[in-house]
Design a protein around this nucleic acid. Sequence first.
DNA 1: AATGAATGAGCTTTCATTCAT
DNA 2: AATGAATGAAAGCTCATTCAT
Lengths: 194, 194, 194, 194
Amino acid sequence: MSGSKDGKHQKILEAAIDVISEKGLDNTSISDIVKKAGVAQGTFYLYFSSKKALIPAIAENLLGITLERIKEKTQTKEKLWDVLEVVIDETFHITKTYKDVIVFCYSGLAIEHSMEKWEAIYQPYYEWLEELLEQAKRNNEIAADIHVKWTARIIINMVENASERFYIGMEQDDTLDGFKKEIFSFLKRALLKP
Amino acid sequence: MSGSKDGKHQKILEAAIDVISEKGLDNTSISDIVKKAGVAQGTFYLYFSSKKALIPAIAENLLGITLERIKEKTQTKEKLWDVLEVVIDETFHITKTYKDVIVFCYSGLAIEHSMEKWEAIYQPYYEWLEELLEQAKRNNEIAADIHVKWTARIIINMVENASERFYIGMEQDDTLDGFKKEIFSFLKRALLKP
Amino acid sequence: MSGSKDGKHQKILEAAIDVISEKGLDNTSISDIVKKAGVAQGTFYLYFSSKKALIPAIAENLLGITLERIKEKTQTKEKLWDVLEVVIDETFHITKTYKDVIVFCYSGLAIEHSMEKWEAIYQPYYEWLEELLEQAKRNNEIAADIHVKWTARIIINMVENASERFYIGMEQDDTLDGFKKEIFSFLKRALLKP
Amino acid sequence: MSGSKDGKHQKILEAAIDVISEKGLDNTSISDIVKKAGVAQGTFYLYFSSKKALIPAIAENLLGITLERIKEKTQTKEKLWDVLEVVIDETFHITKTYKDVIVFCYSGLAIEHSMEKWEAIYQPYYEWLEELLEQAKRNNEIAADIHVKWTARIIINMVENASERFYIGMEQDDTLDGFKKEIFSFLKRALLKP
DNA sequence: AATGAATGAGCTTTCATTCAT
DNA sequence: AATGAATGAAAGCTCATTCAT
């Protein structure tokens, strides 16, 4: 198909996400990945220069999915608050599904000092939210003295981090809705024009 | 007591922090650590059951230092806002100093599915802030409908996460004060009784 | 004919010599060679049955060039001593240009226990010198008790080996002439009718 | 015993020489060597930093043995010619025993561009022969215009090279004495005061 | 004849851990 | 308690070779 990335590349990527989700990065060998992907050991290196090269590829893939979903679900939303609710929902959803991979991506990128890549990957996400905040500012939805660039980052990171802590910290699932609501209120108060 | 902990235990811990700060966890071998600590290879295993056992020990150590410093500097502070400023300052400070170790602790704990330990380690920090929030609530400093337990976690994690992103993302150092102020304003608005 | 050999065959051979000169045999992959030669991976195997099959081919090629040049330059020489000077000059010249390849050919052939090939390759060179020595004997230029077959080999190998050591051992280039002269004198004394 | 090198180091070295003699360097894995030596895989790396580090160690070992034997057998010899006969005999002997290892050492060192090491290893051998040639010069045994330093190298290399070619080229063994005699005559004529 | 993606065996090397001293 | 030589499993990666196109 048109949009579909090269078959083997995508297969390996997905296998990697799967296996790492299960076993963690350190316990995942290339051998595990290729076995799952159904390709030969050497084939991995035709598509990724090394094991480390997986990390940004996975991160990009996951964030791409997330952002796509968020954009799709917010197309009809007019109010910033509705958008934020979607952001929270989707972030929690993707975090639940891929919690291990997300943590390993974050730490993997951080550890390898390739944080610029991380920033580059998040750029479109940040920009999308910055744009929304600008709009909300113009509409007098949010306080005028908010620094849009920083606030966009604060919000995105905060929601992401909170969801990671929630799922990775094995919080009881029945507290989920309360927690999400609290985050929403927190954000709303933090942004709202007094 | 102050210098209480057994000399070798502490030596190894500090050496580990040092070496991991420099080289990252994956590139740090027990051999590196013991060399730096000036003890024999086998000695490591007299104090830590395995390499993985280092991670919570280091995390506890670092958070202990942070919390101690924060408590010390906030003893005289009466207003929640002053306390929060100290929290932000100290978090950024400790993150700057130990950024690599912090990331690796976080991911290390997460990856090994030993997140309960993480929660246990943070417990005193959370409790301390919960207590402060309760007080502030009673004093009508902050909104009455705030869920203290969750909010404590949200704040601590948010500040920590923001500082990590700041330093690891290699943001220009001259934006530091602006960024910290923005975080403070963000938090203040989020908590303030409207 | 001159450029006779099939284009691709020759291209691969030359690429191989080039790359191996630069990187050494062990660090040279078929992939490197075909890239340099501008042909596909599989094409290599249309012309050479294996990587090892390169070695005698390269050796033959190089010795062929050397011998051709020597014969050309000695056509007009009548005295054995003049011929020997050319042999020394040309051997040093070719060794300088292809030192790494020469060593690897020698060792490569030796290691693979295909030394018969080596002998076969050198056969024309040996025979050519044997013939000259016979002549010189008949002309009373050299001692009568010299064993022509062995001496031919001794001379050729000695000059070759000396030049290898010279260039590979990174001797100062300004000692070159002195060294060549010493070899010449050595040989002359060794052969000269007393 | 006293002079005996550290047990494991020597064991590994000897095993390496053995296995490489049989299979050649490229076909010899560390695994083969340690199996033969009766030590663990990792133990190899306690004594040699890498596979390549074996080469100079082996070369030194072999040349050490050779030189020791030559010195021993020439203690009572007064005439240079007698010494040269021993040199020829011993060189052929050691070459016969270790032909494959010798070739791989030579090429290995050459290939790795560590020819300085080669020179360093040969230094004592060269010096020993230089001294003898000086003496012979003073005694009017050999021509006065001989350049001692170069000639020592020419002789040693020539004899070595000839013996390699002889054994590696699988010459008939019954020609051995004739060939050695021819080398001796060749050398004698090359050196003798006319 | 020519291609080059795919293969997978096999290598070197690392390093957490053990244990005799 | 302390040592550090020895272990050996396990991993990442390479690359000669094949084969469907």
